Computed example of a mutant assay.
Amino acid sequence: MIGKTLGPITHTDATGARRVLNTTRVPAHHTGHPRVASTAHLVQAEVRDRAFEYRVAVVGEHLFATEIHVDAPYLDIRTAPDAHTTYRPGTLPAELARCVVSVTRGFGLVFAAWDLIATRDHRVLALELNPGGQWAFVPDHHHITTALADHLEQATR
């Protein structure tokens, strides 16, 4: 299993440097620990057969999907080595795209960033919906930024 913090938790490492706590493997014997059981946390099965990941931004009725391909081992996409990471415009299957927008709307959100994993056997697994997720790291971020600005401009009218 893996665990991911619900917010940007920082810590100081052995060298004294300040670090962000990224997704980590959780030993099975830790899942029943009272400290784990009494806190808000996200624990899920580790997906080992991933083909690539999607970062999907939803703005209003618009959906922007980016495929993230990494040709090196990694656990957390944020720690994947830049030299081994490529970004491509992506397209979600139509039904999945409708579901992503529908769930985003169901939570009353105008914007959401989704993390999805496409497996080698052609399944797509949703990791999370983040109402404050980042988008500026994807190559086509200007389309997302423009859609957000357009939406805000229309909302003020």
Rank of each mutant, 00 (worst) to 15 (best):
L125F: 06
A149E: 09
A14E: 09
L42T: 06
L21K: 11
D150Q: 15
P8Y: 01
E61M: 00
T86M: 04
G133R: 11
D150Y: 01
L152V: 11
R88D: 08
A155K: 12
I117M: 14
T119I: 04
Y74M: 11
T104E: 10
A149Q: 12
L148G: 03
T119V: 06
E128K: 05
R48A: 04
L152H: 12
L42A: 10
A37N: 12
E53W: 02
G16F: 02
V110L: 15
G32V: 05
V26H: 00
V138K: 10
T86A: 11
R48D: 06
D150W: 03
V100Q: 03
L92T: 03
A97Q: 08
T15H: 12
L96N: 00
Q134Y: 04
L21G: 01
K4T: 06
P131F: 10
L63I: 06
M1F: 04
R98W: 00
F107Y: 15
H84G: 00
T24G: 09
F111W: 05
L92F: 05
S38L: 08
L152W: 12
I117H: 07
T86P: 01
L127F: 13
T104C: 13
Q134W: 02
A40F: 09
L148W: 02
S38F: 00
T66Y: 03
H151E: 09
L42I: 12
V47W: 01
L129Y: 09
G32M: 07
P73Y: 08
L63M: 01
T156N: 10
H62T: 03
G106K: 14
Q154R: 15
T86H: 07
R123S: 10
A149S: 08
A149I: 13
D82W: 02
T85H: 08
A94L: 10
T5S: 14
T86K: 07
H30W: 15
A72M: 09
V20P: 00
A126T: 13
Q44E: 14
L127D: 06
E61C: 00
Y74P: 09
L129C: 15
E61G: 10
T12Q: 13
A37I: 10
L129T: 11
H41N: 09
I68C: 07
S102F: 06
H30P: 00
H62P: 00
L6F: 02
D115V: 03
L96K: 01
F64R: 05
R98K: 14
R25P: 04
L129M: 15
A72F: 07
D150K: 13
R157K: 13
E61Y: 00
F64I: 05
T145G: 10
H142C: 00
P89G: 09
V47T: 06
C99Q: 14
Y87T: 10
Y87K: 09
C99Y: 03
L109A: 06
R18S: 08
A147Q: 06
T156Y: 11
R120Y: 01
V43F: 14
R105K: 15
H41K: 14
L6Q: 08
E153C: 12
V70I: 10
D49I: 00
S38K: 08
